[in-house]
Amino acid sequence: MSLKERITEDMKAAMRAKEAARLLTIRGLLAAMKQKEVDERIELDDAAVIGIVDKLIKQRKDSIAQFGAAGRTDLVDKETAELQVLESYLPQRLSAEEITAAVAAIVAELGATGPGDMGKVMGAVKAKLAGKADMGQVSAAVKQALSR
C-alpha cells in the first residue's frame, strides 16, 4: 500500500471514529497533496508525499514556536497534536550518528574540502536522506564535516 493510499484509509478511519482533530489534519495533508498534483500535473509517489509531510511538519514547528512565544498554550496544544499526526507518516528517522556517518561518506565521495562546497554536498545529501532525516540536523552535520 502506498503512503498516499494509507493516508486516505486513515482519513476514512478518522471519520468513522469521529476523531475531528485527526480528521482535520489528514484532510489538510490530502489537500496539500492534491494541490501539488494539480499544480504540477503529476501523480505523487511516496518520496513526494514525504516531502509534503516534511514541509507541513516544519510549518507546525514554526507555529508552535510563535504561539509559545505569544503565550497561546491553546494553539500550541492544537499544533502539537497536528504535528504528532503528521509525524506518523514519516519513515523512521536516522540518529545523529547515522546522519554524521552518511554526511562524512558523501563528503569523501565528492571530495569536498571546505565551506565553498556546502551547496554541492547539501544537494547530494538531500537526494540521499530526503525524508529519512531532519534537514536542520543534516545541515549542521555538513557544516561540521566541511569545517575540518
Rank of each mutant, 00 (worst) to 15 (best):
I7E: 02
I7G: 00
A141Y: 07
G131S: 07
R22N: 09
I99F: 06
K143L: 15
G111A: 06
D74E: 11
T25E: 09
Y89T: 00
A17G: 13
A141R: 04
V103F: 06
S88Y: 02
R72V: 04
A81R: 05
I42H: 04
A124F: 04
T8N: 09
R148F: 07
A70N: 06
Q84P: 03
A108F: 03
A96M: 14
G114W: 04
G28N: 14
A96R: 14
A130N: 13
R60N: 06
R27D: 10
K78T: 12
P115S: 12
D46C: 00
A14L: 02
E79I: 00
K61D: 12
A48I: 00
L30H: 07
A17T: 11
V138C: 10
S139V: 13
E87M: 08
K12A: 09
R6A: 07
Q92F: 02
A133F: 04
I42N: 01
E82P: 04
A69Q: 14
K78D: 10
A48E: 09
K36Y: 12
I52A: 01
E82K: 07
M15K: 13
L44E: 02
D134S: 04
L146Q: 04
M15I: 09
V125G: 06
L86A: 08
T73V: 10
L146E: 09
G71P: 06
K78H: 12
R72T: 02
A14G: 05
E87I: 02
V142E: 05
G131M: 03
A101R: 15
S88L: 03
K58R: 13
P91A: 02
M122K: 11
L83F: 03
K55R: 13
L94W: 05
A65R: 15
L90Q: 15
V142L: 05
A21N: 13
M1P: 10
G119E: 14
I7K: 04
I57V: 10
A47M: 09
